[in-house]
Write a protein that binds this DNA or RNA. Structure first.
Length: 568
DNA sequence: GCCGTTTTCGGCCCGACTGTTTTCAGTCG
């Protein structure tokens, strides 16, 4: 072991990212063969898992540690990792590369690209290199010919830094904070930037630290996850490229001006411009210090405290000056759930189990919104079954105490704008969530009018995940949000913020627009199991970014009042 | 290739619909 240690010290240790890249490249190469797709998936999963480790795989290998302790790594992949660390290459990958076409080898430098799709583009556009691919992407040619989804795939595949969903950054934040506290001995650390504002996609995670020895801290961070690339550093600020693909910004701050530093490192650019136009330049602000807390800063300039989620440069600075900031909705204000699935369609738990879980969260009610008949893949509930479910829930409510189960459905909006159940059945439900799950490819005008027609049905209450987007995966279908908001307002329809962290749909901006039109919003989890009620936190984040107060939120109302709003 | 209250093999969700890149693979939850 000692020999290996010495050997390791003689060379530059591999970063977890470099190891993960090799595994991802192998997965990509295997995917072009007639290889078991689950094997491909296993390599991809292992690669992704490795990127989030704070320990150094290189060190672990040299210490002969058991790598199979980590999720997604078994004997075979542990062997591959050992080979990469000890020899610098992966034989299997090298062999596949020598056998592959030059185009494929070229593509293999970008393991996140799907070779099949890229080769299709090559053929159609008569190109054969990544450079040409990049050019056609930038020309907008790929989007024009293959659509927005393909363009997004190529763009993500060619980009070095992978953005990260907020909920995944939550885990990373904890492990980085732990590392900073325990390994770097910082006195204080606080997360700031986009993460603190709860932006749904994170490119850069940043922390404010109070430390005696900043250069030493930088040195230690360079060994986070084996080796972490230092992009730039200056006195009191360092920028790294993390293995997980996003950047890490560390800024040092003094106790004396900790509050001011929190303010400057949290606000968006637009927010800071507006703020400094009120306070004067940063230099002149500093002269008026000290500002040990954010509150001391806001007080000094006659402002009330601006919640981080609001610091986007809308109207929050003016509102803070006039004491007119909204009192933002919070998780504890939620009185019930309006979008949840059960085993009747594609959920993991029974109606009764979901009801119990809702009660344990302190809710007064939960809707059960299983999928409607057309959505076969998700076990859509046939008409006669939903009739039975209506009767079942009535009986269940007689039996249950402390929670009311609402009879509902996530009703598909069919291609022609009709709803997926007959009116005489919809009439029996307490309310409906109506969503699009098919024909995403319709044009903007058709899609908009499809939703508007659906809203003309008097049993339409809440529009589920309005745009159908999946963050970092799929752009939503195209709709004219302005027309839909106007139509919803006219017809007494509502929107939801779907809290599922890869949807967060409505976006904060659309939520803001809908609320400005006086439309109340449901903050819903779309839970498919009991623990998923906990996702409401992410919906609340977006609601707060949109400036929502409890009075803007449907499920902050008791059922008695809510039921009146649902009657049309 | 990984994993295990379905545990050492066999599953890893799945089934109908869509469409021109693709007549089968991609897509929807």
């Amino acid at each position: 072991m000692k020999a290996k240690r010495q050997e390791q010290q003689a060379r530059t240790p591999l970063s977890n990212a470099e190891i993960a890249d090799q595994l991802a490249s192998l997965a990509q190469m295997l995917s072009t063969q007639k290889e078991n797709p689950f094997k491909v998936k296993a390599y991809r999963r292992a690669s992704a898992n490795i990127r989030t480790l704070s320990e150094s795989l290189d060190e672990l290998v040299c210490d002969e540690a058991d790598l199979t302790q980590y999720a997604g790594i078994g004997e075979a992949i542990a062997g591959a990792i050992r080979e990469i660390v000890l020899t610098g290459t992966l034989g299997k990958l090298a062999k596949l590369r020598t056998e592959a076409s030059p185009e494929l080898v070229d593509i293999n430098a970008y393991p996140r690209l799907d070779p099949k799709r890229i080769l299709r583009i090559y053929k159609k556009l008569n190109i054969s290199s990544i450079n040409s691919l990049r050019e056609t992407l930038e020309d907008g040619e790929i989007e024009k010919i293959f659509g927005a989804r393909m363009a997004q795939h190529v763009r993500q595949g060619l980009t070095e830094s992978h953005a990260m969903l907020l909920y995944r950054a939550d885990d990373l934040r904890s492990s980085l904070e732990k590392f900073l506290r325990e390994k770097c001995q910082v006195r204080t650390v606080e997360v700031v930037g986009d993460y603190r504002r709860r932006v749904e996609i994170i490119d850069e995670i940043s922390f404010l630290v109070d430390t005696e020895d900043f250069p030493a801290l930088v040195g230690k961070l360079e060994r986070f996850g084996g080796r972490t690339l230092l992009i730039s550093s200056s006195k009191g600020e360092a920028l790294f490229a993390l293995s997980s693909g996003i950047r890490l910004l560390i800024q040092a701050a003094s106790r004396r001006d900790w509050g001011l530093s929190l303010v400057t490192s949290t606000g968006s650019k637009a927010h800071m411009n507006k703020l400094l136009s009120v306070t004067g330049s940063l230099t002149s602000v500093k002269a008026k210090g000290p500002f040990p807390s954010e509150l001391s800063f806001y007080r000094k300039f006659g402002m009330s405290f601006i919640e981080p989620e609001l610091r986007e440069g809308h109207h929050e600075v003016e509102q803070a000056l006039h004491g007119a900031l909204p009192v933002l909705v919070s998780v504890n204000d939620i009185r019930g759930e309006l979008h949840a699935h059960s085993t009747s369609s594609d959920g993991a738990h029974s109606i009764e189990q979901m009801a119990t879980a809702a009660r344990e969260r302190g809710y007064e009610y939960t809707g059960i919104t299983d999928h409607s008949q057309s959505l076969k893949i998700a076990g859509g509930v046939p008409v006669d079954e939903l009739w039975k479910q209506v009767g079942f829930i009535d009986k269940l409510n007689e039996r249950l105490t402390g929670i009311r189960v609402l009879k509902s459905s996530e009703v598909d909006i069919l291609a022609d704008g009709s709803l997926d159940y007959p009116d005489d059945l919809l009439k029996e439900l307490d309310y409906t969530v109506c969503s699009i799950h098919s024909r995403f490819g319709l044009g903007k005008k058709e899609q908009t009018e499809r939703i508007m027609r659906a809203m003309d049905n008097r049993y339409f209450n809440i529009l589920g995940h309005a745009t159908g987007r999946l963050l970092l995966k799929r752009p939503g279908y195209e709709i004219d949000m302005e027309r839909i908001i106007a139509h919803a307002r006219q017809n007494g329809c509502f929107f939801e913020i779907n809290s599922s962290p890869d949807r967060l749909d409505l976006s904060a901006d659309n939520t803001r627009a809908a609320a400005a039109a006086g439309i109340k919003i449901a903050i819903s989890t779309d839970a498919h199991s009991m623990p998923e009620f906990g996702l409401t936190r992410y919906g609340i984040d977006q609601a707060r970014r949109a400036g929502l107060q409890t009075s803007d939120v449907l499920n902050c109302l008791p059922w008695r009042k809510l039921s009146i709003l649902f009657r049309r």
